[in-house]
Each structure stands twice: as C-alpha cells, then as structure tokens.
C-alpha cells in the first residue's frame, strides 16, 4: 500500500485576504527552519503537536489547547474546496504558509498538485531557508510565491532569525531566473529592520528581479506575545511600535527604490 503523506497543520484560515490575490484559504503548516524573535505565530516554529494554555474564554475554561493537527492531502483538499465559489468569483485560491511549508515537501507537493488539478490558483508563503530541491518539487504546481525577506545584514539576520540569509537570497534569485511570479513580504520590526538602510537594501536587492510583482511591508504587531505566554515562552522583548507615519515613509522609500507596487 502506498504511504499517504500527512502534515501537521496549526490553522486553516478561510476568508484570507492578505495572502495573495482575491479571497483565499490559508493553510498553516507547523515547523520552521528559522526562529525569528518577533514571530507572531510562535506555535508555528516547533514541528508536531504542542500544548498551549487557553487564556481566554469563560469562567469554566482552564483548558489546554493543542496546536497542530495531522491532516491528509485529501482532507485538506476537501476543506479548501468548500470555498471554491468564493475563489472563482474573486480570482482567489489557496495559500500554504507556515511555519515553513516547504519543510513538509512531500505533502506540500501533493496537496498543491491536487489543488491545481481542482482548478485553484495556488500560492506558497515561504521564508526561503530550505535547500533548493525542496522548491523544485513544487514549482510545477505553484502559481505564486510569497517570499519573505527580513534583514539585509547577514550577521544581524542570523542573530535575530537563527539563520543566515545567503541561501534565502540564492533561492529567490533562482526562482526569479525560472520565471516564477513572486510577491516580496518584509515584516517591519521596530529596532531591528525599521530603518531606511535595511529596507532600502532589501528593496534594491529584490525590487528589480524578474517576476517580482509587488512588495508588501508588514507592520509589526505584538499579538505573538499572547501565544508565547500560552506556550510558556518569554515575550519577544520588543517594546516599541512602528508608527503609521514611519510605515508610510518606508513605503515611499521602497517605491522609490523599485519600479513595482508597494503596499502596506
């Protein structure tokens, strides 16, 4: 009997509007090859199921919630297809995010192939920190890559994300060379990369590549800290916020440094 791959998934978000074009369902795969200090989904980092203390709810709730559930390709396919009429109307589709979805390569390739066969637009949200052959197995079934860039300086990148950025940059270049459609996403983290220097370098690097259609600057929010608490982890230690003015000025900078659309 053939082995059916399963994946550990910590969230399936329907009516997702910011992870690619149109109305989408975003499937979040658990496990990551980086551990960015600001991560807003800290339960996405460790692979496998994980206990979280439920901090919300009514007076009777002192429960533990389990983050992560194993699904087969068929199960995910059926869940995703529930909203197919919304995707068709809005030119939307499905996005696989994480964690790092490419770590569960076999599952990802299979589920993308199934969604493609079902006529869906497919997107993969990746941080790019995986060996290139992981990309090779999904290229055929992926219409759009949401590619995250974080910090330009390699040493700083390693300090704040647990990984260097050379492989990430190489993989982006290879995707571009192969003609993939790419949306660049840069989280703007106060005190870490919210400078003209950082954003400018990242945009100079990616903003002129073939296939790169737009750049999003994502403003840092502290919502990950509540989840960190539920996981028994300490807060990210980021005290500041990024003002809307700052975001707008970085947006302008990014637009000046590239010839493509920049959105917040």
């Amino acid at each position: 009997m053939e082995r059916t791959p399963t994946a550990c998934i910590f969230n399936i978000q329907r009516f997702s509007l910011d992870d690619g074009p149109g109305i989408r369902t975003t499937v979040f795969l658990k496990g990551c090859s980086m551990h960015c200090v600001w991560c807003h989904n800290p339960e996405s980092i460790a692979p496998g199921r994980q206990r979280m203390l439920c901090s919300e709810g009514d007076e009777t709730c002192h429960e533990v919630r389990v983050a992560g559930e194993y699904y087969s390709i068929q199960e995910i396919y059926e869940k995703v297809m529930a909203d197919v009429s919304f995707y068709r109307q809005s030119m939307g589709g499905v996005t696989f995010s994480g964690g790092e979805p490419l770590l569960q390569r076999e599952f990802l390739a299979g589920v993308l192939a199934a969604c493609k066969a079902g006529g869906l637009h497919t997107a993969v949200d990746t941080a790019g920190n995986v060996p290139w052959f992981h990309f090779e197995s999904i290229l055929e079934h992926t219409d759009l890559f949401l590619y995250d860039l974080k910090i330009w300086d390699e040493e700083k990148h390693a300090r704040f994300t647990g990984a260097g950025n050379r492989l990430i940059h190489e993989n982006l270049q290879r995707l571009s060379d192969l003609g993939a459609a790419i949306w660049i996403r840069i989280p703007v983290i106060p005190g870490i990369n919210d400078t003209e220097d950082e954003i400018g370098h990242l945009v100079d690097f990616a903003g002129h590549m073939r296939g790169v259609e737009q750049i999003s600057l994502l403003r840092y929010h502290a919502m990950g800290n509540r989840k960190r608490k539920a996981l028994g982890l300490s807060p990210d230690g980021i005290e500041e916020t990024v003002t809307q003015e700052k975001m707008l000025s970085l947006k302008k900078l990014a637009a000046d440094h590239s010839a493509i659309r920049v959105i917040l």
């Binding site: 009516f15 509007l17 910011d18 149109g22 109305i23 009429s85 919304f86 068709r88 109307q89 809005s90 939307g92 959105i263």
Partner: peptide, 17 residues
C-alpha cells in the same frame, strides 16, 4: 481597498449561491 474589493466579491458569491 483590496478588502473592499474582496467584500464585494463576497457579496456577489453569496448572492450567486
């Protein structure tokens, strides 16, 4: 803007259903 656009698609789909 893109959320407004998506909302309109949502309405159209609900009506089509």
């Amino acid at each position: 803007e893109r959320h407004k656009e998506a909302f309109l698609h949502f309405v159209e789909t609900y009506f089509a259903l």
